[in-house]
Amino acid sequence: MQIYLPIAEVSVNAFLLLGLGGMVGVLSGMFGVGGGFLMTPLLFFIGIPPAVAVATEANQIVASSFSGVLAHLRRRTVDLKMGGVLLVGGLAGSAAGVRIFALLREMGQVELLVTLSYVLFLGIIGGLMFFESLRAIRRSSKPGARPAPRRHHSWVHGLPLKMRFRQSQLYISAIPVLLIGAMVGVLAAIMGVGGGFIMVPAMIYILGMPTKVVVGTSLFQIIFVTGFTTLMHATQNYTVDAVLALLLLLGGVIGAQIGARIGVRLKAEQLRILLALMVLGVCGKLAFDLVVQPTELYSLGPGGGH
């Protein structure tokens, strides 16, 4: 069934959009990632203009994250205090990111820098997570081996402004938390993603949060950052497509619920290695496209300034 999208100004298959939304929603619920890092490139592939894809995707992530966070709230796996501090950094970062995005767009280089940042961040994070979880799985499969003790003292613990995060069982400085929030906010605005794929590993490896509260807390923070991004795109660029968002989020919210339930059944290491493989897969595809000669060397854009 073809449907015409009023803002994107293209006609696409409605069931294709529902399916994409559902698939990405399952991942969102399982891993606590918004799924934007998969959905945004997929929307480009089916012919949605990039500006509309980025803005509308932010709106869809609001829905699937909200659906996911409700499930986590009931299980009490959301650290609200930690989420709040991350959010302060996140909003500041997002505002800065939108300015950077506008600047790059004028130079005609936004596509390249978005792709490069994807390759860089996905590559580093995917690689780190993959090897770390592989080691963890090997350790736990050896009979009689003790689980590795959590490192209690890293550079994070030497900073001032300490706060107690009861739910995460942590007493750490607010500075790294604010910095992580800000960095994710910048990336969210530039790359058109929620930023969960960076936030989740950062919370586990840098802050040392227990895995069970990481997903819920990440989703909690993502709702606000992407909501803020949606409003800014709607008021400044007029690029939020309500029909596209509705179709994606119908599939997405259902998928997120299914994903949250699958996530509970899997072990933390298995969950992490799966996410790592997926992150590396997207990274590889994007890197490949940068290096291989494209079939069409020319691209058209609106002819605004000189």
């Binding site: 009023p6 803002i7 709106n59 869809q60 609001v62 829905a63 699937s64 994250s65 909200f66 659906s67 996911g68 409700l70 499930a71 909501g227 949606t230 409003l231 795109h233 709607a234 008021t235 400044q236 007029y238 939020v240 309500a242 029909v243 968002a245 509705l246 989020l249 119908l250 919210v253 259902i254 997120a256 619920q257």
Partner: peptide
């Protein structure tokens, strides 16, 4: 209707989009 709302009342349009997203998330849950 969607197109003109998005162009002429962007703030209202953005808030409505958010409201729809939150409602859908809650309903699914």
């Amino acid at each position: 209707l969607i197109y003109t709302t998005a162009q002429e009342r962007p703030l209202l349009y953005g808030l409505l989009s958010l409201a729809v997203a939150l409602a859908a998330g809650w309903a699914a849950s």
